[in-house]
Structures are given as C-alpha cells and as structure tokens.
C-alpha cells in the first residue's frame, strides 16, 4: 500500500524536487512551507512519513518533531530530518528527539528514496539510521 508523505521545507526548488521524487515513487504527497503550516497538515493530512527541514521560518523543525513525538510513535509516523547544517550536534539532537533518520543536504536522491522506502514499504527491515 503506497503511503502518504508530507514535505516540510521553505526552499521552493527543493520542494519541487522532493515532490517529484515522492510522486514518482507512488506516494501521496502534501507540502508545507512553514512550521505552522506543517503542524496543521500533520493533523489534517495524517502522513505516514514526514520529510522535515530543520531551518524553517517560525516554528523550527525540532519543535515540530517534538510535537509529533508527543502524539505518535516511531512506527505510527516516521520522520526523516533534512538539514543543510550537517553538524554532529544537530544530528544527535534530532535523533534524541525521536527522528527516525537524518539526511544531510545535498543528498543523493537514491539514498533518500531507499530511506523513505524503509519506513513505508512493509516487509523490509525496520531499523533506524541511528548509530
């Protein structure tokens, strides 16, 4: 069963590329460009997986992640953090707050797709990228 993916990023062109990749892979896609919009879409769109940028105007990615984890487990809603700041601290923080995986920009589209599949296609292994 194809899953639902919510893309949260404020860079228009990155959103376009992600949208294309996810739709091509057969997922239903919705987009949020700000933190507030993302919170709203999480409730209404109920995605199975969120591609979440860290540096967002308004509510930042970590805050959104925390809100998600207050209500959904790692299996109910997978979260893959995307960030252009590839610092070790941020990766650790993201994983500590309950991100399933962490991908640094610029990313390889194949790696990204593989990562998304891991959480959305049943039957495959279900481990996080932690460690």
């Amino acid at each position: 069963m194809p899953g639902k993916v919510l893309i949260v990023d404020d860079e228009a062109n990155i959103v376009i590329s992600l949208e294309f990749l996810m739709e091509q892979a057969g997922y239903t896609v919705d987009v949020a460009r700000t933190g507030e919009e993302a919170i709203d879409k999480i409730d209404r769109f109920h995605p199975d997986l969120v591609l979440l940028d860290v540096m967002l105007p308004g509510v930042n990615g970590f805050d959104i992640l925390q809100r998600i984890r207050q209500r959904f487990t790692l299996h109910q809603m997978a979260v893959i953090m995307l960030t252009a700041k590839g610092r070790e601290v941020e990766v650790t923080k993201g994983l500590a707050l309950g991100a399933n995986a962490y991908i640094t920009k610029p990313f390889s589209t194949r790696d990204l797709l593989a990562e998304v599949r891991r959480y959305l296609e049943p039957g495959e292994e279900h481990e996080t990228l932690a460690n």
Partner: peptide, 21 residues
C-alpha cells in the same frame, strides 16, 4: 555552509532526476 548547500541540493537533486529519467 547552509547557504551554499541549499542551492547545491536543488542542483544535485534535479541533475540526478534528469539523469535517472
């Protein structure tokens, strides 16, 4: 770094998309 990576992300993503499709 962040500002440089952002355009690079789009460039790489679309290049790969064009390459793969």
């Amino acid at each position: 770094t962040h500002e440089l990576r952002t355009p690079l992300t789009s460039i790489r993503a679309f290049s790969e998309i064009l390459h793969d499709n």
